[in-house]
Amino acid sequence: MNVGVIVFPGSNCDRDMFHVLSDVFHMTPQYCWHDKPLPENLDAVVLPGGFSYGDRLRAGVIAAHSPIIQDVKKIAEKGIPILGVCNGFQILVESGLLPGVLLKNDSLNFMCEWTNLTVENNKTPFTNKFELNEKIPIPIANGDGRYFVDDETLKQLERKNQIVFKYDQVVNGSSNQIAGVCNEDGNVVGMMPHPERAAEPEINPHDNKPSSLIFESLLKKIGANN
């Protein structure tokens, strides 16, 4: 199971994601540098968190112009699972692969804390092992994590089942407490919280099983495809 972990200048959760994919869930991840073409044998792609290009101009916007994003768009059309976490989510939004924008948190501060998510869509490649409304204790760490869409788009997202995760309480002022969304086909998922920081018991003071299901869902999906 080949998973591409895309690395932009300033990505800083790439090594964490790589560790979890390989050492915890025994997939075969490979780093993909932003100005090289995406390898062709990938079963899934992850855009990890960090500060690509130092979050300059707007988080994710410069990385969204990288050559590799064109390749990501192509494989997204083929239905290959793509997960963007934190800055990866911001990049997916800025590149038009996912709807909405991510604004500064309403506290105006960077926020690093544990939150609880509820699963709103369990049909995606990253949530297929969850029950609907299942809770996930998981940390956030971002300055621009407030997901925003206008009311019209929000209705559409709801109608098309594109809301994947919500916070179980108000965290940063995001529209409808949205923490993660997917594209219409459901194969591209973006989320602000960090599943790679919650999938091992040693570093998760609450319960690491729910976050593990995000990766196990991918295993199930890829296994089903193969």
Binding site: P9, Y53, G54, R56, L57, V61, I62
Partner: peptide
């Protein structure tokens, strides 16, 4: 002005 420099080099001049 690191931000201006990044926008120039990594976005505008790359186009």
């Amino acid at each position: 002005d690191p931000e201006g420099k990044t926008i120039l080099n990594d976005l505008v001049l790359k186009g």
